[in-house]
């Protein structure tokens, strides 16, 4: 199990690096699926089997498919890939990378420096999760329902095609 964890972790990291380095959106999405699947394996090794399944279904399935649909609607071409390549200059990515590495270093330091008490990690099955979810976390579940509702309404409202340009600033810039 331990080996599986490390291999899956490595795959996840590499796939994610490839996501952020690729210029083609579709390629990036495929790497993203790989990354999600690898994380699902990590979940499995940690004993969260139900979460592994959810990760595959919702992240690697639903969300990625949703993004692909949108990409298809946007009708992207080879020029977009070229543009992506031209945007990715060292001057753009060096600064953020250094910042992130500092942050990562700090995180690592905090994780390593803090003495965590050793416990025997036990697998938690879906039943325990379900009992907790519909027990003490009932309110959270209901709030999630409201959030999803808001998401649906918001997406519908924003996604409507408006023939007229809505904003005068946008109108001017669209004209220029």
């Amino acid at each position: 199990m331990e080996t599986t964890f490390y291999i899956a972790g490595a795959v996840a990291v590499i796939a994610t690096i490839l996501v952020i380095m690729s210029y083609n959106l579709i390629h990036a999405l495929l790497y993203l699926v790989v990354s999600f699947l690898a994380v699902a394996v990590v979940f499995f090794t940690l004993g969260a089997t139900f979460m592994a399944a959810l990760e595959v279904i919702i992240y690697a399935g639903a969300i990625v498919v949703l993004i692909i649909f949108v990409i298809m609607m946007l009708n992207l071409t080879y020029e977009d890939v070229q543009q992506e390549r031209s945007w990715m200059k060292p001057s753009v990515w060096i600064g953020p990378s250094i910042l992130s590495f500092v942050l990562l270093a700090e995180l690592v330091y905090m994780v390593v420096a803090t003495e965590a008490p050793q416990t025997t990690g036990a697998a938690i099955d879906a039943k325990a999760v379900g009992l907790a979810l519909y027990g003490p976390y009932m309110l959270g579940v209901q709030l999630c329902g409201i959030l999803l509702m808001a998401g649906i309404v918001g997406a519908y409202h924003l996604g409507r095609q408006k023939k007229k340009v809505v904003h005068r600033f946008l109108e001017r810039s669209a004209a220029s």
């Binding site: 600064g95 953020p96 910042l99 992130s100 500092v102 942050l103 700090e106 995180l107 330091y109 905090m110």
Partner: peptide, 20 residues
Amino acid sequence: LRHYVMGIVVGAIMILTITI
């Protein structure tokens, strides 16, 4: 947008540094 995100990250780094 990217600069705003960068601002958030710098803030996070500051807070973490202080905490450490």
